[in-house]
Amino acid sequence: MYAFDYRRPHSLNEADLALKAHPGAKLLAGGQTLIPAMKLRLAEPGQVVDLGGIGDLKGITQKDGAIRIGAMTTHAAVAESTVVAAALPGLAALAAGIGDPHVRNRGTIGGSVANNDPGADYPAAVLALGATVHTSKRAIGADQFFNGLFSTVLEESEIITHIDFPVAERFAYAKFANPASRYALVGVAVAKSKSGVRVAVTGAGASGVYRLPQAETALAASFSAKAVDGLKIDASNLMSDIHAEADYRAHLIGVMLRRAVG
């Protein structure tokens, strides 16, 4: 790891000032991605601003038909939350399937969403549920937020504060995990609400998480695994790597989609 200067602000305002004073500073949330990247010298920030000291960024509440999750809430806290289990049990199950127990005790929802790893689980839930990402500057809709591999519309000095997930009639996430890393080789999130059905795919897309309109149309007409059985999944926009070819990922999308619909 290269040397860096460290700041641990105790309020959002202090964090804002630290970011403004040091352009290029990296925000440290749970550190389960950033610290390994720094150890490998893939990331070499001169300044790290640790959000761990800001209590306001943690916690889960339910308000106006939505679950609000603070950016620094750990995966373990989401997985164990009685509020999430009652309103969106599929989201609690998603959180319980990230990494391993020790990683879940440190890793945070804000860190995961901001990093937008193409194999991460949370982006699929954010997109399928049509969640709103709130930052220190604005509110960003899920359809606008993700912006390609490891990329979002977040600006350099913008901090995610919390994410609002509208409570759906039904929400489920099915993942085929890479057996070594537990990242999604393919993950499919399906949300059914009054406004319709939304389907999001992670782990597979060459540009990261994306929606599957033809599955949404089929499920809106008939919400059953049978309705999407035999759905043709286009493999031309999917990743091929040492873990899986695009064709295999396309096949797995169909399987995970049917499992998520149940």
């Binding site: 460290y6 550190g31 389960q32 610290i35 390994p36 020790h102 990683v103 005790n105 440190r106």
Partner: peptide, 9 residues
């Protein structure tokens, strides 16, 4: 809570 101390500052 159990954490990985090689991945925590």
């Amino acid at each position: 809570r159990a954490i990985k101390s090689c991945t925590t500052l």
